[in-house]
Design a protein around this nucleic acid. Structure first.
Lengths: 388, 388
DNA sequence: CGCGATATCTTCAGTATCGAACTAACCGGT
DNA sequence: ACCGGTTAGTTCGATACTGAAGATATCGCG
């Protein structure tokens, strides 16, 4: 009998558990490590002693004082344990960061790029930028344990970018393979909304929430799902495709073949073209947000309209997933409450009472870096940290 | 600092892991146990030796032969390790089963009941039936390790039944507390679609699939989500509320305050009232299915229409959750392909390509017992099996 | 039929992990 | 300043678990 999916709890050795917990939390006391790993405090003590001796772990100096009781010694993974690289590739930008194993960014770079160039050109650019940013951080290639990159579009189980209008030059490219080869380092690739969900769940507005949804509202609209504290990708790694939720079955035809998809109402195309007649000089979502913030009524209105549409789709998602928190990121999220208030209203209106009551809708606290920091998080998960 | 949700892997002792794995799979060889628990084969050997001596585990006799290699000895939890009780409470029926710890049903009972009596009357009835079914199985109360019950409606974190038109007499009742007291046994209560998902995922049409959705299509329409092999309930335990997915924002007003909810198109009320003008003698969903199966065109048509509506909502769910499998149960599922074919077509039409390709839509293999067997499964999860 | 391939199960010495008891550090009240 | 309450971290003997090596069982093939 072929053995089925590993449904039950796999066992890991304590050393790995401790290192993984440290990588995930960034910093923790021995007591916290004992709680999150399930190991006995005494075991953590002896494991940490070994790790300290090896130099993998360093004492953070400060103590983490609660209200009562003895404060704990803060531990983190040391700089000499290695670094990871996170990359966020968007339609018109490219961001890279070198991070130590406690998600402290050592160096970062950001650069504009053309939206329609072929994957191979982008990859060349990425390779050069990684080299640069490593130089800026004063880190050698051999110290890099893992690299991860976020792409705007569905990344299938094969590591291939599925149908995406945002990055036409990458469709069908086996991104993971290609970049692994180009960099000569272990690379993982994932959808950018998934990565935003990861970072906001670990270190952002969703910290401590077991079940959350990250919404990326930029050119397209995508969702990343964290369930039980873990990123959930679905059977074919395309979970979170909220952009094609049908808002109105009699609406305009979408490229996906349906009518009235959310993207037809709240995608950047839709927002910009609804402004064109009266605001012909406005190009780009960022500018719309800027004007809305400055009090321009038309821009504020289209953002509110988008919020309402997104909220309508989000209501259905809340009915189905019942998350404790929705973290909103992406360019449009810079509009803050101008976007969120109508969104919340639409959720309250469209979701069943209890689901609407359970969910807290909030802005991404890592802002524009959520996706890049998520790439750092994914690289951390993928890195073989226990190696010395 | 209050410790956050247990995000990382909690550690269990080997004995518990083995017993839990056996309870979940029903029967397994030592080698399979080693794989699913992550323990070393040698550890499993010694743990099983202890359990055999205690009588908690028995050798099943047969061997589980693969294609090549030495076949393994099949083990299961012995009858003397105890039993659990599963209860399925519906609008007009009540089912109970006594099961050993390898989900072998020792005795079962089924009975019709009135739909509008108060919870206290139902509880009296349940208590009497549990007594009876234990007698029929030749089992004493002290041998019962745990009891679980499924209810048609959202069961909140508090153990209270939320808004439900199906069982008005139970709304607001703290079902778990009430039944625990009435039976004098540890009771867990959950939504019936969740329980169907549990049983179909463990022992039914979804066995081996990590991410699946169970759809219960009866009086109402509910979904249960299994994610990563585990039942997912959501932040407020109301995940899977697919019945109030908006199919058409211009549709008829639903009791939830929205327009065009799925239940307004595919709930039993909707189906029966659309038949009333031409088929005034048809009462009850089961009869509609029966007639449709016999070739009655009108009944077949309303079932197909319901399938199409359900498929439309299911498409949105597939976009968001991307499950590997959808298992369809409940009364209407007895119509088989008459229901499923239009459902599949609507999913293909409404979901993005990859999500539609990933999902297999199939009939519940445990049939009408899915919910009751799910209660058995939940009781098994809740039982303190390692005790002796 | 015997032999290699494959997979299950067992034995046993070595070690990782645990539990109980203890020390350490900090708070607040008297 | 002292003392009870509370949480963090350590020590050390007891034990549960592991890993490597080997025995056992079945299949398929020449």
């Amino acid at each position: 009998m072929a053995d089925p999916a590993p449904l039950s709890g796999r066992r890991r050795d304590g050393r790995g558990l401790v290192v993984d917990a440290l990588a995930s939390r960034g910093a923790a006391t021995r007591a916290e490590l004992a709680r999150t790993t399930g190991l006995a405090p005494s075991t953590v003590t002896s494991l940490v002693a070994g790790l300290l001796e090896e130099g993998l772990v360093v004492e953070g100096g400060e103590v983490n004082g609660g209200v009562v009781g003895r404060p704990g010694q803060v531990l983190k993974l040391g700089r000499k344990a290695g670094v990871v690289v996170g990359i966020d590739l968007g339609r018109r930008h490219l961001k890279t960061a070198v991070s130590d194993l406690s998600h402290g960014v050592l160096a970062r770079q950001e650069r504009a790029k053309s939206s329609d160039q072929h994957a191979s050109e982008d990859i060349e650019l990425i390779a050069a930028m990684v080299e640069e940013v490593l130089g800026a951080a004063g880190v050698g290639r051999h110290e890099v344990l893992a690299v991860a990159m976020g792409l705007p579009g569905p990344v299938h189980t094969t590591g291939e970018l599925g149908d995406s209008t945002i990055l036409p030059g990458w469709v069908g490219v086996r991104a993971q393979e290609a970049l692994t080869e180009a960099l000569g380092l272990p690379v993982r690739v994932d959808n950018d909304a998934n990565l935003g969900a990861l970072s906001e769940s670990k270190w952002g507005a969703g910290a401590g929430v077991a079940d959350l949804v990250y919404l990326k509202v930029s050119t397209g609209i995508g969702a990343g799902l964290v369930i039980n504290g873990q990123l959930f990708r679905g059977a074919g790694h395309t979970a979170g495709e909220i952009g094609h939720t049908v808002i109105d079955p009699g609406g305009p035809v979408c490229r996906c073949g349906n009518r009235g998809c959310l993207e037809m109402y709240a995608g950047s195309q839709a927002i910009l073209s609804s402004l064109r007649p009266t605001h012909p000089e406005v190009h780009g979502l960022a500018r719309v947000v800027e004007l809305a913030q400055a009090g321009e009524a038309g821009c504020a209105r289209v953002i509110a309209d988008a919020g309402r549409s997104i909220g309508t789709a989000l209501a259905t998602l809340c009915n189905i997933v019942n998350p404790g928190c929705v973290v909103v990121g992406g360019t449009l999220s810079l509009a803050g409450e101008l976007l969120l208030e109508p969104m919340r209203a639409a959720v309250r209106r469209g979701a069943v009472r209890s689901a609407a009551d359970d969910v807290r809708v909030t802005i991404a606290s890592l802002g524009h870096d959520a996706e890049m920091m998520g790439a750092v998080a994914l690289a951390l998960e993928n890195a073989d940290l226990a190696a010395r």
